[in-house]
Amino acid sequence: MNAQTIDYTKLQRQVDAHPYPLVFATISGAHLYGFPSADSDFDLRGVHLLPLEQVVGLDPGEETVEKEGIHDGLEMDLVTHDAKKFFGLMLKKNGYVLEQLLSPLVVYTTPEHEKLKAIAKDCITKFHGHHYLGFAATQWKLFLKEEPPRVKPLLYVYRVLLTGIHLMRTGEIEANLLTLNETAQLPYIGELVERKLAGAEKGRLDAADIQFHEREYAKLVAELEYAMEKSPLPEQATGKAALNDLLVRLRISGC
């Protein structure tokens, strides 16, 4: 499978142009999930740090910075949150932000990024399973919405469900579908990825395919629900104090 080459130098230039200091910037989206097409855009995600005067003053800074477009010949979508907002999301059973934080595709990092990753394990609970069930249901609706349905949203369905099952069983975040399937051994995943990479002509499914994947979707939803019920993960996050301490130190130091 031909994965799109990642030009970290060009991505770094976008990070360098960010209006605020960054704690980290990583790549999410199809590149993280293991099935980027040649024309896939780059989803950059991260955490920035607002200066103290924009936190305590009357004129608030940007909690979220968004930038998209074509830069240096690459289509990019950059989204970063201020540290306080991001830390709050980590405590709200949001698997998406944990995937961004723990992404192995790192464009920019700091010692505080490493500290934040260490705290992340104390923010994971068994109720993160609800995040992945809800995310999968949304992606399934998107899959059925188009006529004929495309392979891409179906891959997102399977990626989300397998990530959730793996997390409930192991307490580890893994977002790469191909890596997840080394354990899940779903025989159709490789073919679906190949069809997605082949382009629009082969990226559609017929009625027989849809019926098959409806059964697979229902089976994996039930598997995730069972994994969540039996998960050894705690019911409550215990990382709040450590996040608070890190946030205070970040504000004082200005990163």
Rank of each mutant, 00 (worst) to 15 (best):
I6N: 06
D7L: 03
V15Q: 09
H18Q: 04
H18T: 09
V23P: 02
F24N: 00
T26W: 00
G29A: 10
H31D: 04
L32R: 11
F35E: 03
F35K: 08
P36W: 08
P36C: 11
D39K: 12
D41E: 10
D43Q: 09
D43P: 07
D43S: 11
R45E: 07
G46N: 08
H48C: 02
P51V: 07
E53T: 07
G57P: 10
L58I: 12
D59E: 14
E62Q: 15
G69A: 03
G69S: 03
H71Y: 15
M76E: 12
L78E: 08
L78A: 09
A83F: 11
A83P: 13
K84A: 14
K85T: 15
F87S: 05
L89Y: 12
L89R: 00
L89I: 08
G95S: 00
Y96F: 09
V97Y: 10
L98E: 11
E99Y: 05
Q100C: 15
L102C: 11
V106K: 03
V106W: 04
V107A: 03
E114I: 05
L116G: 01
L116Y: 02
I119L: 06
A120P: 02
T125V: 02
G129D: 02
G129F: 07
H131I: 06
L133Q: 01
L133P: 01
A136C: 09
A136Q: 05
T138Y: 11
W140I: 09
F143Y: 15
E146G: 10
E146H: 14
P148C: 02
P149Q: 02
P149V: 03
P153N: 02
P153C: 12
L155P: 13
Y156S: 15
V157D: 03
Y158C: 11
L161T: 04
T163F: 01
G164M: 06
I165R: 14
H166S: 15
G171V: 09
E174W: 03
A175C: 09
A175G: 15
L177R: 07
L177N: 05
L177P: 02
T179P: 08
Y188C: 00
L192Y: 01
E194V: 10
A198Q: 10
G199N: 09
A200S: 13
E201N: 11
G203T: 04
D209G: 10
Q211L: 13
Q211Y: 06
R215V: 06
E216C: 10
E216I: 12
Y217H: 12
A218V: 12
Y226Q: 14
A227Q: 02
E229N: 12
K230N: 11
P232F: 07
L233S: 06
L233Y: 09
P234Y: 00
A237C: 06
T238E: 14
G239E: 09
K240V: 10
K240H: 03
A241Q: 14
L246S: 01
L247P: 04
V248L: 01
R249P: 01
R251I: 13
R251C: 08
G254H: 04
G254S: 06
